[in-house]
């Protein structure tokens, strides 16, 4: 095993926080794990170059960068054909552990069907536990925008998860 360079905060940070950050990226990417890994690596590589200029904690900075990069990335992806439409996800009947996994997948995929900014707001607010003010600061928008996006996003998510197609997987 190689050794940790004691003076490298970034190395230590990546080594210890990459799993937590990947989870955020996974939700930001609507449950696409490969995209999440690409997104995280891309963002971390960019942050590496400017790590010494980052004021405050590295982790909030990286999370904000992830959120903003995911919105841009999603806009680029949206121009391509969707790989797994949400409405098809619930067609198979499964039970037990498989059903649980599928239900988790549903939440991530439902997130993925939201507009990018709305999705990012929900992830920062309810997964990363950021306040409205911190979410607004991370995204460079007003707290009012965060509040309205949150309300609309939760309502939309509720609709998506209550879709009858989704209900088929239960029981």
């Amino acid at each position: 095993m190689s050794t940790i360079r004691p003076d490298d905060e970034f190395t230590e940070f990546v080594a210890h926080r990459s799993t937590a950050l990947l989870r955020t990226a996974y939700l930001l990417c609507g449950g696409d794990r490969a995209a999440a890994e690409d997104l995280l690596q891309d963002v971390l590589e960019r942050v590496y170059a400017k790590r010494r200029r980052v004021r405050g904690g590295l982790e909030p900075y990286v999370r904000a960068a992830l959120a903003n990069a995911s919105a841009n990335r999603w806009r680029a992806r949206s121009r391509r054909v969707s790989e797994a439409p949400l409405e098809h996800a619930g067609e198979q009947r499964v039970g037990g552990h498989e059903r649980e996994v599928l239900e988790r997948d549903q939440v991530a995929k439902a997130l993925g069907s939201l507009p990018s900014r709305m999705r990012v707001v929900l992830v920062l607010r309810f997964f990363d536990d950021l306040s409205e003010a911190d979410t607004a600061a991370a995204l460079g928008v007003s707290p009012g925008t965060v509040k309205s996006q949150t309300a609309r996003g939760v309502a939309r998510l509720r609709e998506l998860l209550a879709d009858p197609a989704h209900e088929k997987t239960r029981g």
């Binding site: 799993t19 990947l22 996974y26 939440v107 997964f127």
Partner: peptide, 13 residues
């Protein structure tokens, strides 16, 4: 919040 945590459970870098 709980659903989002569940959705990422077990995910490792």
């Amino acid at each position: 919040s709980r659903a989002l945590r569940d959705a990422t459970e077990g995910l490792q870098a």
